[in-house]
């Protein structure tokens, strides 16, 4: 797979991830991760495996995070691994309806699955 092919794949995966998060479907969010995936959150311990990821993303969605957006900066594929450097943004709306925006860098590592699909192996942001 050429890097420009993977760019298209990564862009599509970003849109699917954001769509699942923004409709508050944590199970759909977790379906984008490899069985051995790890999330490395800002300010918390690393989260390993699908069960822990379900709890993690359910908690993030329940905490009121909305409008998650992943924007690709650079992506490369090499054999069965690929990565994306990007930018993320999201917002939190508090009980008084005040909106606060957050953003930062994001790095996503993907592993090619037996069926040819790419799933997230590592996900870190700041």
């Amino acid at each position: 797979m050429t890097n420009s092919d993977f760019n298209a794949v990564a862009t599509q995966l970003n849109q699917a991830w954001d769509a699942a998060f923004n409709v508050k479907d944590h199970a759909q969010v977790v379906s984008f991760y490899d069985d051995e995936a790890t999330v490395l959150p800002a300010g918390a311990g690393q989260v390993n495996g699908k069960d822990a990821l379900l709890t993690f993303w359910q908690g993030a969605i329940a905490s009121g995070i909305v409008d998650h957006k992943l924007e690709l900066i650079h992506a490369e594929a090499d054999g069965n691994l690929a990565f994306q450097r990007g930018h993320w943004s999201a917002a939190v709306v508090n009980a008084e309806g005040q909106r606060q925006s957050f953003s930062g860098n994001v790095h996503l590592l993907y592993r090619k699955q037996a069926d040819g699909n790419w799933k997230l192996l590592s996900h870190i942001w700041n």
Partner: peptide, 9 residues
């Protein structure tokens, strides 16, 4: 390690 890539967490 996968091919020409290593990752570390």
């Amino acid at each position: 390690i996968v091919g020409n890539t290593i990752y570390q967490r």
